[in-house]
Design a protein around this nucleic acid. Sequence first.
DNA 1: ACTATAACCAAACAATCGTTTGCTTTTATG
DNA 2: CATAAAAGCAAACGATTGTTTGGTTATAGT
Lengths: 203, 203
Amino acid sequence: MPTLATHKPQANNRREIVLEIAAGFFVRKGFNGTSIRDIAKEAGMLPGSLYYHFPSKEALLVAVFEEGVQRISAAAEAALAACQGNAWERLQAACEAHLVTLLEGSDFASVIVRVLPQDVPGAAEELISLRNDYEKTFIALVDALPLPAGTDRSLFRLMLIGALNHVPLWYRPGRETPSNLARQIVANLRFAQDNTKTEGKRT
Amino acid sequence: MPTLATHKPQANNRREIVLEIAAGFFVRKGFNGTSIRDIAKEAGMLPGSLYYHFPSKEALLVAVFEEGVQRISAAAEAALAACQGNAWERLQAACEAHLVTLLEGSDFASVIVRVLPQDVPGAAEELISLRNDYEKTFIALVDALPLPAGTDRSLFRLMLIGALNHVPLWYRPGRETPSNLARQIVANLRFAQDNTKTEGKRT
DNA sequence: ACTATAACCAAACAATCGTTTGCTTTTATG
DNA sequence: CATAAAAGCAAACGATTGTTTGGTTATAGT
C-alpha cells in the first residue's frame, strides 16, 4: 500500500501556549471560575479557536492535569534516582521535589492540588485515577519506612500529602525555601515514630 | 415615647433553611459551581426570592461561612472546656472536635475548608479574617506544647491543619471514626518531638 | 501549480448566570 | 377588622457561559 496522506504541515505551537495559560487560570481562578474566553483572550485568540486544539473545556483541563501529573512525577522520580540514602532520606527527597514543583515549578502541577475532581463531573474519575497513579510513589516510599508495628501507613501517607498540599495556601516566598519546608515537614513526622512504644492506637 | 412600630410578624424560618441548602451546594459543587437557581429550587422558592434574605450570592456565602466558623469554633471550645489534661491532650481534644465537626457535623463547617477566598473576590479578605479568628485557637494550643527549642511552631500548626483539612478529601465512613483519626494524627506528630536532639534544622 | 491539512477567524447559537423590579400573598400585631 | 411589615411570586433584564458552524489563511508535500 502506498503512503497515504503522510502530511505533517507543522507542529502544534499554540497548543502548548494555550495549555500553559489555561494552567495559570485554573490555578488562580479554579475550573468553574475560568472561562474559555479568559484563556483565549490571554492567548490572543478567539474563543472558538480553542476548540480546534481541544474538544471541550473539560478536555482542556484533563490535558493540563495530565501534564501536571507528568511533571511532578518526573521531578519526584528524578530526585529518587539521585538519592541513595535510607527510606527516610528517600521520602524526604521526594517531598522536596514535590513541594519545589508545587511552589516554584510551573502552574501545571498546582492544578492537581487546586482543582477538585468533583468540579469536573465528566472527567472526575480520570482525574482521580491520574492522581492515584502519582501517589503510588508515596505508598511505596511510606511502606519502606521503619515505622513501629501497628502504625497506619495509609493515614501516615495521607497526613504527609495533606500537609504538603496545604503549603500553597499559606506559602509566601522569601522566608523559608520550599526545600527547607519539605525537610522540616518530614522531620516533624520522623522522630515521632522512632520511640513510639507500640502502645495500642489500634487493637 | 410610645412604642413605635414594634412589629415582628414572624421569624426568619426560611432564611435558615436557605442557608443550610446553600451550605450543602457550596460543599459539594463549590462556590462557582453553585447557582442561585440551584439553591432556590431545592428550597422550593424562586431565584429572586433569595434576594429578600441576602443582598447577593457572595453575601450568602459569607453568611454560610460565618455560621461554619461559629459552629466549629463552638465545638472546639466546648471540647477544650471539658478537657483538663496537658497541652498535648488539649490539642488532641480540639483536633477531635475539629474533625468530627468537619466529617459528621453540618455542611457549614466544611464550607470553610472547601471554598477558597479567592473564589469570592468581593469577600476574600473577610473570609480570610474569619478563618484566622478560628485558627487563633490552634496558635495558642501549639504554643503551649512542650516542643524542643528551635521548632517552627507556625509550620507545626500549619502541618496539623493541613493534615486535618485534607481528611474530607479521602474519608469514607465506616472504617475509622473521625475521633480515632484525629487521635492518630496528633499521635503521629507527638512522639516525633519528644526525643528530638535539637539538631539544627534551623540555625 | 495543485492539493490537503493545519490553524484560526468571524459570528452566532441556545443556555444559564446573578440580579432587579413590581406586584401579591401571608402573618402577626394593634 | 385594619394595618403594616415580612416573605415570596412572576417575569424579565443584560451579561456571560460553553460551544458550533462555515468560511479564511497559512503551510507543506507531491
